[in-house]
Design a protein around this nucleic acid. Sequence first.
DNA 1: CGGATCGTTGACAGGTATCAATGCTGGTGG
DNA 2: CCACCAGCATTGATACCTGTCAACGATCCG
Lengths: 231, 231
Amino acid sequence: MKPTSINQAWNGAEKCGHCPIRHLVLFADLQQDDFNQLHEPIHDLEIAAGNAIYKEKEDAQFVYTIRSGMVKLVRYLPNGSYRIVRLLQLGDLAGIESLSGSTYLHHAITLQDTSVCRIPVKDIEQLNFNTPNLYKQLTARWQKVQSDADIWLAELTVGHAKKRVANLLLYLSHYQSGQYFYLPGREDIGAIVAISTETASRTIAEFKRLGYLFTTHQGASINTEKLEQIQ
Amino acid sequence: MKPTSINQAWNGAEKCGHCPIRHLVLFADLQQDDFNQLHEPIHDLEIAAGNAIYKEKEDAQFVYTIRSGMVKLVRYLPNGSYRIVRLLQLGDLAGIESLSGSTYLHHAITLQDTSVCRIPVKDIEQLNFNTPNLYKQLTARWQKVQSDADIWLAELTVGHAKKRVANLLLYLSHYQSGQYFYLPGREDIGAIVAISTETASRTIAEFKRLGYLFTTHQGASINTEKLEQIQ
DNA sequence: CGGATCGTTGACAGGTATCAATGCTGGTGG
DNA sequence: CCACCAGCATTGATACCTGTCAACGATCCG
């Protein structure tokens, strides 16, 4: 396994200004002056698939912007099983609860090799206190938390297993720019749509047999029309 | 049915300063000067049980602070059924998405007679631009959206029907100050924990027979230990 | 005294969890 | 280079749970 690594550290203005995904990230609306208020270093992290960015109940001092890859937010249940309550991708913020609480609410675990920017909460609070330029982007991200949670609740936990898995595939495919998307393991699929691993496997296998789902080394792709018709 | 009514309208400082639940509401941290920035009237509304405060896709111009009663946030599904994605009580904010989007994401429907303060979004944006005193309370409310959604996802949509209903009763009981709490109708219980109305009814009836749940004209109460043991 | 609405209960078919066994594949070390 | 292993995916058999259809009871209100 590739080790978790810290590639770079820098102070705000030097690098954020040249961020290739600047239009997608939390700092999108900041002015040059605002960056001067960032006093602590921002780290650029590469995290190999399967590792935790942070864990539930840990001291929450950082927010993470996802630059590439995919992250699952996980809650463990008393009986030892787990539930995935959200998936994070390009431009999403992990650990946003650190802005309000003192500890993280979930485990954040990478599904693929993932790169993130680690931003100190202190800097964000400082910015929020001194400039109104962050407010809009922060609110937009909180709102995405809400609408994603709604999708989870309304589309991924209701109805028959086939319908739920179909909706998950449509969701995964929709949030990806290209034709191919990352297909989670069967246990994770089960933890997302609240079905057993075996039922997830059976359903995925059936979709493959029916030609609704294809998997290659580049990722998975789907027949959207067919999956939308499933009841 | 009691009609929906507007009791009072006032401009910020005159009344918010004397709000009996001031410590619980969005404006908790505002200073006297801040209130002077409220230019549009804030209305105090009484809404009878079963009425909509706002509906999905309506133009979102107001945020509502719940002063008493209970509200369900509802999403209708393509097949005509519905799902309750959150319950709001004292101090919660309904329509918080109006701060970021242009339309409401849910129907907000009162379960009991409910009183709310209707706050124009423009005033909140104005305050956010000019003072940092609102940020903390707003963030706390966004965070509650997240943690409530997590509870819904992790505790109310996983496992057997009995376990889900038991968790719902514990949730309802926990967020109430007194011994008694409001017990939703069977159809609503089904829409919260994603089971059929009949299964909800059977489960509630069984809990009553077992002495885990009691209903009186004052509301419902539970045997917490017994419900926590259910698997 | 109906009628409407909601809650309860029964019967049954179908779907899903569970337990279990068997493929499959990528990585490791001989 | 190949055998082996560990982890994941697939598939089968079965019991149980829950959705569905249906009927009936309770309560409130006009």
